[in-house]
Amino acid sequence: MKLYKKEAFIGRAKQRRFFDLGIHNSSGSGFLALLIGLMTFLAVLALATSFALSAMAERWSHSLSNQITIEIPATNTSKGILSTEDIDNITTKAGKILSRNNGVESVEIKTRKEVEKLVEPWLGEDLDLRNVPLPGLITVTLKETDEHVITGIRNSLKPLSGSIRIDTHESWLSDLLSFTSALQLAIFLIGSVIGATTIIAVAGGVRSKLSIHYEEVEILHLMGAFDTYIAKQFQVYAFLIALKGSVIGAFSAAAVLFLTALLSNDIAVTLLPDFELSTTHMVFLCLIPLMAAILAAIAARKTVMKDLLNMV
């Protein structure tokens, strides 16, 4: 580089300029990066939660589709509390009846140990359940969910016990899906607020830079620079600042998610399915810093283009 070899005194430019305007030198850039970092941190957490909820709801929905649970209650309206033998007897008979039904794919009779395991979270591990009357449970997988098949099953089991209950999980699943949908909507709204805050922050930061560097902008204008040429400087500046802040924010959020996953593995969560993210969701989360940077660049460009209209 012949050009820059001649200089040897303090106050020389270190390299070819990246920005014509001194926007990267003046104060306020650090604050903007920090703000975008925080916004990205929140956005990654909110989106990760939304994705995990969506995955959980799908797994729940998938695992319960075409499934019904037959419960043989431990109490009977005519005989009072049934003995364990009676319950086992009715359960076995019910299993045989169900296996013969054409609409049934498979029948799984829960053993007493499995039923004890199911009630454990409510009754505790230390309680001796040997003398506690527990209901009989049969998980039935249907070939397809059909009201006629369920009615047929109900009628065929009636002679065994009038108090047999059939749980199609529908109302529980419907409530659960409504709840997860409401949570996802709330997260979407939070995400929108985060996005809007980022845009407002970038617009404010850029406007302040534009005001600080008004004279330099005017010089570029007077030399014949198009508005797009000037806006591009702010656009690149906002992109780089936002990318820097959002990468830090995303890494911080990833660390928090990792710690949460570690902690939740240590805690025996038996009531909820695993909190997992798919590869697609992970890729999407990794793209958030880039999206934040692009959003910042667009916000910067729009702001500058609009404000430049006030100049001659």
Binding site: A13, R16, R17, D20, L21, E216, I219, M223, G224, Y229
Partner: peptide, 16 residues
């Protein structure tokens, strides 16, 4: 423009 070298100041109209 203060933060630009002599070279970059003179080059500015050409870059524009």
């Amino acid at each position: 423009i203060d933060h630009l070298s002599a070279f970059d100041n003179v080059a500015l109209p050409l870059r524009i």
